[in-house]
Nucleic acid binder design. Structure first.
Length: 707
DNA sequence: AGCACGCCGACT
DNA sequence: GTCGGCGTGCTC
């Protein structure tokens, strides 16, 4: 191996086949420092080139970076030579590299981990020769359809007045500020998708690529179908974790090579390299799924906005119930607010009825109250008589959330978690929903032998059973994570609902998203109060969005819309959230929530970072955070920075799968101050682990969704 | 994070 | 005498 005089200097010898020292990123989290490249010898390659690099005893995928930084290579150290270049591929473009650089520094991950983790995994296995073969075959796209002679845009409906206005507003915005973000506020059924399609059409007509992000791809086959219908002559590819590794690579290549016109995908798609990017759409922008919950915990929605600004490309965020972060940006004029207040086709939103559960007759002593109040049952019967369908929304699967022994007060706890085990009657198990621990339900109390142990509370299994008893002969279907575990059963159950083979559908959150039920005219939120009083400050925001979305399942057929209803069983009918919901008034809800957040100094009025740790003992977890807190507080004092470092606390679930969890919150009104603290603090955290044996893992979450 | 090397128990 | 447990340490 050749000797080099010093790192990071090109070897100035043209005879020596112009070997240079190249800064290369590999997938290594260990280089905690934010900017860290490894130095290799190789031919002159532009930044963004993908290479094969020797690393220890293996050969890994590497990415030539723009500049070396923080490199610990010693002067005179022998550098190894790159093993090859994936040169049939164009280098990843500057805009892509800048996005990765920002994400790595903002979410405090190493550049190498960030960059390599957002490339298709299959790319790691590719050597230059097999890549060349792959690209040569079928023009590089395998089974993807080649551009056809079909019209590039199919017939499209006349925009409604709302849509026309929104489109005019968006066109004006784009002319004024090409990299600007617009927030499209439109209730379910207001025709947001048509606005996306029109904007996409325009970008496509200018020869640009369109990136469409959705929270979960399996919930949005309609959107994919509509894009394909509307743009039959264009190449659309998807990007999500459900693809096989080969498909994902093929789709990614189509995007990167500029062959794909439309990329539709989940959060990972925000990192698709798109040489002709012209528009980014983020549908249901409030959805928590946009936040990655492991590894680099990025928010794809926030990165989409950043990317738009970076590339001078418009970003369109759409929601009926925007995140309060986006809403505040719109209020401040940082995002353009584009309201769409009418449902298409004069369809009315479902009427919201609050059922005051405190006014319902009390159940006899010792008996549990019936699951549905008398007026709700009457409303259900009415639908049955009219041959319409109803949806009972209960966000709790299983038969009962806990079993209880009235004699000795035993409860069905989980031996590994600080949680109850849920009674699943169908397979007679007690299951922990957090660690998966499961065994047969005991015949008698395991503590005192009392044979009369009782279910407490109600899940979807029990509700399904009780409905059958209350309304004999009714056809009930249950859709939740348990009933749809087998592949294809969800589709099967949904088609039974669509075919009218079901009168009442019982379901969890799963059924509230995306599905276009035409015959449902009644939605009942059976027990939504829990979310009102959670410790999570975003609980109300999520509940409001969920109930609006659930209500949106009713009356999707314009003819039935007039008599569609959303009933809410609540012990807190006066709660401001329900009062806003009754009027479908997102704006009053948001105003009230923002006032509360401002008083409490919570986002979007402050910025948060959360350090979480899991350890074998509470002491180890506590010690780790205590040391971390000491360092953070020392930094804050030295810098006289406005950052609050809160004491460590147990999270809602303090023990999961035998590991003790603790967390510590950092809060600041200034994002730069918080970022500066994180940047200086994190390298030291990696060393702390050695001082606190028993720590299994720790993670920093910037802009956490739940605290 | 992988994937080595390294130093002590039950097997062909 | 070997196969293999996962404890520490390195990777341009």
């Amino acid at each position: 191996m050749p000797e080099v005089p010093a790192p990071n200097e090109a070897v100035d010898d043209p005879v020596e086949t112009a070997q240079q020292v190249l800064p290369v990123l590999v997938d290594m989290p260990f280089h905690g420092a934010l900017d860290s490249t490894l130095s290799y010898l190789g031919p002159a390659l532009p930044p963004g080139s993908l290479v094969r690099a020797p690393l220890g005893h293996r050969e890994v995928l590497g990415l030539v970076w723009d500049a070396p930084s923080d490199d610990l290579v010693a002067p005179g150290q022998t550098l190894r030579a790159l093993l090859g270049t994936l040169d049939p591929l164009p280098p990843l473009p500057l805009a892509w590299r800048r996005l990765v650089r920002f994400a790595a520094s903002y979410y405090q991950r190493s550049l190498g981990e960030m960059a390599l983790s957002v490339l298709p995994p299959e790319l790691r296995k590719l050597d230059p020769a097999s890549l060349t073969r792959r690209l040569r075959r079928k023009g590089g796209l395998g089974s993807a359809p080649a551009p056809t002679d079909a019209p590039q845009t199919a017939a499209r409906p006349e925009p409604t007045e709302d849509q026309a206005q929104a489109l005019a507003q968006l066109a004006a915005l784009q002319a004024r500020e090409p990299g600007g973000t617009a927030l499209l506020l439109g209730v379910t059924g207001s025709g947001k998708t048509e606005v996306y399609l029109r904007r996409a059409e325009e970008a496509l007509a200018q020869g640009r690529q369109v990136l469409v992000l959705v929270p979960e791809i399996n919930l949005t086959p309609q959107l994919e179908a509509r894009l394909r219908d509307r743009f039959p002559g264009r190449l659309l590819v998807t990007q999500h974790s459900g693809l096989t590794p080969a498909q994902r690579l093929r789709h990614w290549l189509a995007a990167h090579l500029g062959q794909a016109d439309l990329v539709l995908g989940t959060r990972m798609a925000v990192f698709s390299p798109l040489p002709r990017l012209g528009l980014i759409v983020v549908d249901e922008e409030h959805d928590a799924s946009y936040k990655q919950q492991e590894g680099a915990r990025y928010s794809a929605r926030d990165l989409a906005v950043y990317r738009g600004r970076l590339e001078g490309v418009p970003v369109l965020l759409g929601s009926a119930t925007p995140s309060l972060e986006s809403w505040r940006h719109a209020q401040q004029g940082r995002y353009a607010l584009v309201p769409m207040r009418q449902r298409v086709g004069q369809g009315a939103l479902p009427q919201v009825r609050l059922v005051d559960m405190t006014q319902q007759p009390q159940a006899p002593r010792g008996q549990e109250p019936p699951p549905l109040a008398a007026p709700v049952l009457a409303a259900l019967r009415e639908r049955l008589e009219r041959g319409e369908q109803s949806l009972l929304f209960l966000n709790r699967r299983g038969f009962a959330p806990v079993l209880h022994c009235p004699a000795c007060q035993w409860k069905s706890d989980c031996p590994h978690c600080s949680a109850w085990r849920v009674f699943h009657k169908l397979d007679r198990t007690l299951r922990c929903h957090h660690c998966g621990f499961s065994d047969r339900v005991p015949r008698a109390c395991p503590s005192c032998g009392n044979p009369d142990i009782q279910p407490v509370g109600r899940g979807t299994e029990r509700l399904e059973e009780q409905i059958g008893q209350w309304l004999p002969g009714v056809r009930v279907a249950r859709i939740d994570a348990d009933s749809t575990r087998l592949k294809g059963t969800l589709e099967q159950q949904l088609s039974a609902v669509h075919a009218g083979e079901v009168d009442i559908l019982v379901g969890t959150q799963m059924v509230t998203k995306g599905h276009d039920f035409r015959r449902i005219t009644l939605v009942v939120a059976v027990n939504p109060d829990g979310a009102l009083f959670t410790t999570d400050f975003r609980g109300p925001e999520r509940l409001f969005a969920t109930l609006m979305q659930a209500g949106g399942r009713a009356g999707r057929d314009a003819e039935a819309a007039a008599r569609s209803e959303l009933w809410i069983q609540t012990w807190n009918p006066a709660h401001a959230l329900f009062q806003s919901l009754r009027r479908h008034d997102y704006e009053s809800f948001a105003a009230a929530q923002l006032a509360e957040r401002e008083m409490a100094g919570l986002p979007p009025y402050s910025h948060l970072a959360l350090l979480r740790v899991e350890a074998r003992t509470p002491e180890a977890a506590q010690d780790f955070l205590a040391l971390a807190r000491r360092d953070a507080m020392a930094w804050v004092e030295a810098q006289a920075a406005e950052v609050t470092v809160y004491p460590p606390v147990p999270p809602y679930l303090a023990r999961v799968a035998g590991l003790e969890r603790r967390q510590m919150l950092l809060e600041s009104g200034s994002r730069p101050a918080l970022q500066a603290l994180l940047r200086d603090w994190l390298p030291g955290l990696r060393g702390l682990r050695a001082q606190t044996p028993g720590v299994a893992r720790w993670a920093l979450d910037v802009d956490p969704l739940g605290i």
